[in-house]
Design a protein around this nucleic acid. Sequence first.
DNA 1: AGACGTACCTGACCGC
DNA 2: TGCGGTCAGGTACGTC
Length: 272
Amino acid sequence: MPELPEVETVRRGLARRLVGRRFAAVTVRQRRLRRPLPPRFAERLVGRRVEAVGRRAKYLLVELDDGQVLLVHLGMSGRLFIDGATAPGAHDHVVFVLDDGSRLTYHDARRFGLMALVRRDRLAAHPLLAGLGPEPLAADFTAPVLAAALAGRRTPIKAALLDQRVVAGLGNIYVAEALHRAGISPRRLAGSVGGARAANLLAAIKDVLAEAIAAGGSSLRDYVQATGELGYFQANFRVYDREGRPCPACAAPVRRLVQSGRSTFYCGRCQR
DNA sequence: AGACGTACCTGACCGC
DNA sequence: TGCGGTCAGGTACGTC
């Protein structure tokens, strides 16, 4: 799925196209996503004007003129794209028609995504958002904050960084890339990442996310930007999905291991 | 409390 | 060409 850089790329694309527009019609073709769409979903959206498109972690926050926020999570295979008048195809679950005649389609083969409607003043307390850790690119996400979140945890650092309560927005790809940049083994216990290591890791997280956003995100097998174009950060992966190929830093072959059921790519020489 | 396995769902890909 | 097995960017839940 889209991780933070991909969601941020979609957010920027949506903001350009949606802000100031009204929903003229909303068609639900499949309401069973990870959770069912809210009751009266289409009725609650039609006629509403979009005031802003924000983001928290991997959630898109479409702010509406009646104080509601349309919250969208893309799961692993969710896409949002503006298209013309083509007929909806397989896995096009929701079609939003805008007042300028353009259409926004939500497409999600695996249906691990979700949408919710939340009052803006209740957003922070909403169960989907309340437990999220700091935004990794925010100024107040600092090395001491990261070190404190990791302190005492006996789980591998790989698993800790995937935990959205520690830091919100990283997924399997960017965790692997950040750990490589920081020279930290994915197997190292989270609680042993403090001091200079935490500072290195913090910088690596911020750098890799910022670079990926600047590149328009990554595009694996089913991720496309809001505009339909492909991001190209995947060309810059140093370890992710590069098993057996040389580490860009030391040329040792990139290795793969499985941690809590998920692939981890790393350099056994650079990462300790 | 925290860590682990499993479930959700479909498609792509690989080897036979 | 078809079939079965494996894997995929995420999260939530049950169990220990």
